[in-house]
Write a protein that binds this DNA or RNA. Structure first.
Length: 497
DNA sequence: AGCCTTTGACCAGCG
DNA sequence: TCGCTGGTCAAAGGC
């Protein structure tokens, strides 16, 4: 199944270019910044490795900026939370791994990070996603291994695909494969991360632009990575904006990474290649095709307030008037997606060109299946997804805005039950889905309501509150603990617009 | 041949 | 009315 393969690939991407087990774990822990603790792998390119995100990346769009207080607070919170958790994670995971693997896991030094945490407030434990920006929970969750593993004690979903021997494909692996195997492999010299020339990269990182793009990453674009990019992209772009508000977290829930790591080329290549010629080439999360629908770009313009050009897309379906605006950073990261209207048709078959691209992620979610009623009112662009993981649109609400960011995709994936379905179904899960979902969801609501990307899916009850709290209309609907091999690494909360 | 992207021009809304 | 801005059109070209 492609889905599985994808997952595998994704996992592989995680691997640092010249990875050593330590590096890997350190990365996992997020100690990249303080790599000094791991002298063994000096040569490693940290930027390529997993980064625990940098807070700055997490900034959100302008609208959110307005909320200064929230903004800074949130950032800190998230970071802090992560750090804190990280410490736990570190202690637990690393040690466990070390124990199993038989090598000494480096102690991660998170002191510096903690310092940051100091600013951390009670929020640290906030239900919001605590996963570091650089670290993409989504990946974990989505990956076959993690998905299943989180719930299941033994990650048998398969070995990590990135094992050098290559025989370990998640899908192929016998269910029996257990963590033991995994660790054993690690322990054994055989364990090696793929040099990633190919997949160089899954950049978890919150590397900031400062890290610079590495050419190698260009290659990194595996189809799989696409959705990550999307997510990252949003985050990335937003980071520029300066702080992020709580609402922003919705974006982060699923996102950890910073797209910027990947070179623009990489992304573009990736997108283009993966998506195939489909017009989607444009966007990772924002790519039209990502959401499962076919889009035709009919214009592009540099918007005054926006640092990046805005692209205009129309749904290619005959009677569908849905449009969407996508802003992408120079690097190709989507900074904002705004849907206008609702699809009045089911998602097209994967076959389409876009489909050819690996990206086609068609969610076989119920929503998709059903035609979406909705006339689009030309009048207004409803949804904005800045920096959000795509969420499920809150179609219940008026003026629901669904935002799906490429990135957004994650949101739905995690939070959205459907997303989960998707993953399980074996269909490739794409960030796009999220997007799609958003658009899709925007149902009956008149087109007027554009869809904003929102992460959460339900939370109806909370919704009102959320609105109150978050001008952006995001609310926390549900929090799910994220664990990695029994280790609690954070919580994911879905927010509903 | 069909579909899509690109891109400059055009149009409408607003102050 | 003018200028600015955002959104859309449509020709040209590519795949």
């Amino acid at each position: 199944m492609a889905g599985i393969d994808d997952n595998v690939a994704v996992i592989g991407d995680w691997v640092p270019p010249s990875p050593s087990p330590r590096a890997f774990f350190s990365a996992m822990v997020g100690d990249d910044i303080n790599s000094r603790t791991i002298p063994e792998s000096p040569g490693e390119k940290r930027n390529e490795g997993l980064y625990l995100g940098q807070p700055e990346q997490m900034t959100t769009g302008n609208s959110e900026k307005e909320d200064g207080a929230q903004t800074s607070g949130v950032q800190l919170t998230e970071l802090g939370t992560f750090s804190e958790q990280k410490s736990n994670f570190r202690g637990g995971l690393v040690e466990r791994i070390a124990a199993r693997a038989g090598f000494n896991a480096p102690r991660l030094n998170t002191e510096s990070i903690r310092s940051t945490e100091s600013s951390m407030n009670p929020e640290i434990r906030s239900p919001y996603l605590t996963i570091p920006p650089g670290f993409s929970p989504t990946t974990l969750l989505e990956s076959p291994v993690f998905l299943s593993n989180l719930a299941q004690p033994s990650p048998t979903t398969g070995k990590f695909s990135f094992f050098p021997n290559g025989n370990s494909t998640v899908g192929s692996d016998p269910p029996d494969k257990s963590k033991e195997t995994f660790f054993d492999n690690i322990d054994s010299s055989s364990f090696a991360f793929k040099p990633m020339g190919e997949s160089s990269s899954f950049f978890l990182g919150g590397t900031s632009k400062s890290h610079g793009v590495e050419p190698a990453k260009a290659q990194f674009e595996s189809r799989n990575s696409l959705h990550f990019r999307a997510e990252f992209s949003k985050l990335t772009t937003e980071k520029d904006s300066g702080g992020f508000s709580v609402a922003d977290q919705r974006t982060f829930d699923t996102v950890g990474g910073n797209a910027e790591h990947s070179s623009p080329l990489a992304e573009q290549q990736d997108e283009e290649g993966d998506q195939g010629a489909s017009g989607d080439s444009m966007a990772a999360g924002g790519t039209p095709s990502e959401d499962g629908y076919n889009w035709r770009k009919y214009g592009q313009k540099q918007v005054k307030g926006s640092e990046y050009p805005r692209s205009y897309y129309k749904c290619t379906h005959p009677n569908c008037t849905v449009k969407k605006k996508v802003e992408r950073s120079h690097e190709g990261h989507i900074t904002e997606i705004i849907y206008k209207g609702a699809h009045n048709h089911p998602k097209p078959p994967l076959n389409r060109r876009s489909a050819t691209g690996s990206m086609d992620t068609q969610l076989d979610t119920p929503e998709q299946a059903g035609p979406q009623v909705g006339a689009v009112n030309d009048s207004v662009w409803a949804g904005t997804q800045k920096g959000t993981a795509a969420g499920t649109p809150d179609w219940r609400n008026d003026n629901v805005e669904v935002s799906s960011s490429a990135s957004g995709g994650l949101g739905p994936e995690f939070g959205n039950p459907y997303s989960s379905v998707q993953g399980q179904s074996g269909t490739p899960f794409e960030s796009a889905d999220a997007v799609d979902a958003s658009s899709t969801f925007s149902n009956d609501e008149d087109d007027d309501r554009a869809t904003h990307g929102s992460v959460g899916y339900d939370g109806e009850g909370e919704e009102s509150e959320s609105k109150r709290r978050f001008p952006l209309h995001f609310s926390v609907s549900q929090c799910i603990p994220i664990t990695f091999y029994d280790i609690f690494i954070g919580t994911r909360c879905t927010h509903v617009v």
